[in-house]
Design a protein around this nucleic acid. Structure first.
Lengths: 229, 229
DNA sequence: CTGCATCCGCTTCGATACTG
DNA sequence: CAGTATCGAAGCGGATGCAG
């Protein structure tokens, strides 16, 4: 695998475990939820299968990931994060907030999985007022992401089944991302017809207001340099 | 350079710019302060000089770094971060907090630069009480790091000249790191003779208390997996 | 079908040497 | 001081094979 930087530095040590190609993207997938080998292959187009196997082995010996065999009827293997691996959440979210600067370029020819918005929404969630409560489903390309707010915390995850949400917000990925990052207002997105809201609009507004608040790099720095600059 | 992941995902986009070997370590050096080419080579043992040149070129065209020629007497070139590059601070600090878990292993055969503690101290700085004020110099292996606290903010930087600090804390890198990360108490470190404090001890205590507070991964998860586990 | 291992052409990395 | 040039070794991406 990748060579160690051999530096007594926490950043270098972190990169000794995460710096290899594909590793952090595997962690991203597992932050969304446990995955089978083939789930990972599908979500990571372009990864060589031996490389994926290598990375998973490395992550396992490093203690970031565990292999778990599902009970008999399924008879499959899932990979999931250990507490050590899950502790990467804040680092991933910080990278997502910075990387969002580069999302203005559009997605010509790139692959996209709506599930990735789970990570993006978590990344842009700000402090939660103690009295805000509610469940909002975000619907993008048929994938349902459930945002549950309550007790001063927010939980974002894939929703297995519809129903039970106070409101549903539907739109395309760019719009959802822009609103989450605070680059586009919730009201403005609705007025432009880019978001459709059904159910309890008060709850929807309150939950959406949790996002796009903090001084994330997207708001501080603006866009990437123009071409030719 | 590294191939793009071709994913419409902020993490993948970030890694498209930062994922190449050495890139984030170059950013780390520049977060400490502007560097000349030879400074970078010295701080990054093992980097091939053509690779360093490649990375700097890439960082420049990506808008994270600018080349600046120093005025005549010096007649040299320094690299420094643009606002876009400097916006990586939070991502780097988050990675440092996670990577600190792996710092228990000791530094056998690894290189170490005391200046790196500038980044570590920033990474572990917690919220600053509005009424805390003071300047503390941290002395490690002859390198002086100045921690200035006031107005609810903390600034950590290399100190060019001695003097002007309310207190001076001297010790080795492991001890300073442990105290900053909240794994070792300030008082305990002094009692064990691992830290020596001179000057105003009240200010020293107040400033040190800013560190090691937040629920960083080191405190939540503990150490890395034992060997053979 | 899932979960890998093997082989191969190509790119990238690391080390050294050399130049304005 | 600030890079460029070169070359062997390692890593990557893609295709294929194969056992459970």
């Amino acid at each position: 695998m990748g060579k160690s930087y051999r530096q007594f530095c926490a950043l270098a040590r972190a990169l000794d475990h995460l710096g290899d190609r594909w590793t952090l993207l595997i962690v991203r997938e597992l932050l969304i939820g446990p995955c089978r080998y083939s789930d990972l292959r599908a979500a990571l187009p372009g990864v060589a299968t031996n490389l994926l196997a290598d990375r998973l082995r490395q992550l396992e010996t490093d203690g970031l990931v565990v292999r778990r065999e599902l009970p008999p009827p399924a008879a499959s293997i899932v990979y999931e994060l250990t507490p050590l691996g899950a502790a990467l959440d804040e680092a991933v979210y910080a990278l997502v907030r910075w990387g969002a600067i580069w999302m203005v370029a559009g997605r010509d020819g790139e692959t996209f999985e709506p599930r990735w918005l789970v990570v993006a929404l978590r990344a842009f969630a700000g402090p939660v007022p103690a009295d805000t409560r509610g469940t909002v489903d975000v619907l993008v390309e048929g994938v349902r992401i459930r945002v549950v707010v309550g007790g001063g915390a927010v939980d974002v995850a894939l929703a297995e089944v519809p129903g039970g949400a106070d409101a549903v917000v539907a739109g395309d990925a760019e719009t959802v991302l822009s609103v989450a990052a605070g680059l586009l207002s919730f009201g403005g997105a609705q007025r432009q017809g880019r978001l459709r809201v059904t159910g309890n609009r008060g709850v929807a507004r309150a939950v959406v207001d949790i996002f796009g608040l903090g001084p994330s790099p997207v708001n501080r720095v603006g866009g990437p340099p123009a071409v030719g600059e």
